[in-house]
Design a protein around this nucleic acid. Structure first.
Length: 566
RNA sequence: CGGGGCGUAGCUCAGCUUGGCUAGAGCGCUACCUUGGGGUGGUAGAGGCCGCAGGUUCAAGUCCUGUCGCUCCGACCA
């Protein structure tokens, strides 16, 4: 491919709308253009990258026995009404009508239609297991599209669904997919980490997320430094490690302490001259299962996912000042468990071990001292409720955990029979008994992976693609195209590399060398072959984008040297 | 959905407060000259429904109302 004939509209200035690095670079380097909020055109460079990513995904899905299909993107409302998600999905579902006024939606995911498919055509245990996947556009009318390709309203996702006879079969399918994902992200050249994840509203009991590690990632994960242990989890899911032993201290008598205007843990600590680990924080939440009070130590945060799971709530949010006053009779900042009624208590296990702690007194400007869980307030539900943070002990081996940020690019779930039972997806086993199909689902955000690769691999100059997914692995840059020696040698280099099966772009534009070098760095070709001063000697210069290392090579050995470097 | 900000040339932005000739700059683009190892220097050009609609006014890019779009922060998610 020749740059003079190829559409690579790089910008000198960055469009103002872009905030995150991948969005900015993708726009600036001429990979994408916005069509509308959350909708992007992929220009040739991005399209090439996408094709390479999809190819690797396909190969790994197929290797595990996956069979690719193509499903309708536009789907009848009827299907979604039957699963109940026409209502549940809410405004995120893009809805439209055909000319007859019938309701349709643009698929945000494909569980319904694939279940429908399998229900119609799979009846016997002889047809199982089955791994079906598709890689297509999905649509979600996000509340707030942002970050360019990291969160669009239209995006490409690979979804594979596994259908098995029983749990043992599901376990096999799950492991196959887990391995496939490791291979996919490894081949893409990304630094990633699989972590334990909450299965969320999709349900099921086991789930892992695949995180591309990047400082800009929205997700926070913790992992154990112990090589033998290997524990890693999304903080939403991460379990708390070893419990703190009970204080060797005799419970003292409950005592009211005036704390005028001291609403925050910090204020109360300073005023009463105690550490935050002596305080019990009582947070009121409103949930679809009624109000509840979450109790954690003063220096801890509530993990809302754990709280939701503990009370069986799907939606929860912190109560506002009016609600707090109605329930506690006190303003914000003085809520405590002693004498509190009309709410469900959920107590972090760490709190249950505390002795002589300090809590709000449910009256303005006062706290209690020497509060003792169990004695001064009930413990109907003691559970792991706190948010795990860095340096907390690993729940498996006790070593201090490390934290990292990541971009979620894939998630695998064991769905079990949750879906199939609701939808009536069954098969006849070898004894003629009707049994629910055991399902799993496995997604990869393909367009998001493209953006995540940029988030993880860039510098001030531009992108730095892993060779496996670079739009072109090599760019050949003649310094002066009007110099016949240089342009001829550049053509030879281009032909040699093309002939050797390397994806190569010849930057034959009559631009100044500085312009071409800047563009090459911006677009992020892993390797640049510069044809300049040394051309008369038949030598070209090779420069690695990631570290700037350079070396000379003769035209005859070029293809071999390039292949060794990539 | 709540709270801010912004819509003027392909891109980045002035101009609006205090209404007044033909609406500006830099970059990019076109042609020519120059230069030729990190966005060269010059000459001449092209390019605008000032987001849209209504209103006020002798006069609106500028003031008022409405509307649409974009964006950032917050609550939710691949």
């Amino acid at each position: 491919m020749r740059a003079s004939e190829y559409l690579i509209p790089t910008l000198r200035e960055t469009p103002a709308e872009a905030e995150v690095v991948s969005h900015r670079l993708l726009l600036k380097a001429g990979y994408i253009r916005k069509a509308a909020s959350g909708f992007y055109t992929l220009l040739p460079l991005a399209h090439r990258v996408l094709q390479k990513i999809m190819r690797i995904i396909r190969e790994e899905m197929d290797r595990q026995g996956g069979q690719e299909i193509l499903l309708p993107i536009m789907q009848p409302a009827e299907l979604w009404l039957r699963s109940g998600r026409w209502q549940v999905y809410g405004p995120e579902l893009f809805r439209l009508k055909d000319r007859h006024g019938r309701d349709f939606c643009l698929g945000p995911t494909h569980e319904e239609i694939i279940t429908e498919l399998v229900m119609g055509d799979v009846r016997s245990h002889k047809q199982l297991p089955l791994l079906l996947y598709q890689m297509q556009n999905k649509y979600r009318d996000e509340r707030r599209p942002r970050f360019g390709l990291l969160r669009g309203r239209e995006f490409i996702m690979k979804d594979l669904y596994s259908f098995d006879r029983d749990e043992a079969g599901l376990e096999v399918s799950y492991r196959k997919m887990f391995e496939a994902y490791q291979r996919v992200f490894g081949r893409l050249g990304l630094e990633f980490r699989p972590v334990e994840a909450d299965s969320g509203p999709i349900g099921g009991n086991v789930s892992h997320e695949f995180m591309v590690l990047a400082g800009s990632g929205e997700a926070l994960v913790v992992h154990c430094p112990g090589a033998a242990c290997g524990y890693a989890a999304n903080v939403e899911k991460a379990e708390s490690g070893a419990k703190r032993p009970r204080h060797e201290e005799e419970p003292a008598a409950l005592e009211l302490a005036p704390t005028p205007g001291k609403r925050t843990v910090d204020d109360v600590c300073a005023f009463l001259e105690v550490g935050p680990e002596r305080i019990v924080k009582t947070l009121l939440y409103e949930t679809d299962k009624g109000p509840c009070a979450a109790l954690v130590r003063g220096d801890r945060e509530v993990n809302e996912v754990k709280l939701g799971n503990a009370v069986g709530a799907v939606h929860l949010e912190m109560a506002g000042p009016e609600t707090i006053r109605r329930i506690t009779g006190a303003p914000v900042g003085f809520t405590g468990p002693v004498g509190l009624e009309g709410v469900r208590f959920v107590v972090d296990d760490e709190v249950s071990f505390m002795v002589n702690c300090i809590t709000g007194a449910n009256q303005g400007d006062a706290h209690y001292r020497n509060v003792n869980p169990g004695r001064d307030f009930p413990l109907p539900l003691v559970t792991d409720l706190r948010l795990v943070r860095e340096k907390d002990p690993c729940p498996r081996c006790g070593l201090p955990l490390l934290a990292a940020r990541g971009i979620e690019v894939g998630q695998v779930f064991k769905l079990g029979t949750k879906y199939s039972e609701v939808m009536g997806l069954t098969y006849l086993d070898e004894h003629g008994a009707e049994r629910p199909v055991v399902m799993g689902c496995y997604g990869i955000g393909v367009t998001r992976t493209l953006a995540a690769a940029v988030e993880q691999n860039h510098d001030e100059q531009g992108m730095i693609w892993p060779a496996a997914i670079a739009p072109f692995a090599v760019v050949v840059v003649p310094v002066n195209v009007r110099d016949e020696v240089q342009s001829e040698l550049a053509e030879k280099a281009y032909a040699a590399l093309s002939g050797a099966g390397v994806d190569v772009l010849l930057d034959d534009r009559p631009e100044r060398p500085g312009v071409k070098f800047k563009d090459a760095d911006l677009v992020g070709y892993p390797l640049r072959v510069t044809v300049g001063k040394t051309a008369a000697d038949g030598l070209v210069e090779l420069r690695l984008r990631k570290n700037g290392d350079t070396r000379l090579a003769g035209i005859g050995e070029l293809a071999a040297v390039v292949r060794a470097l990539l």
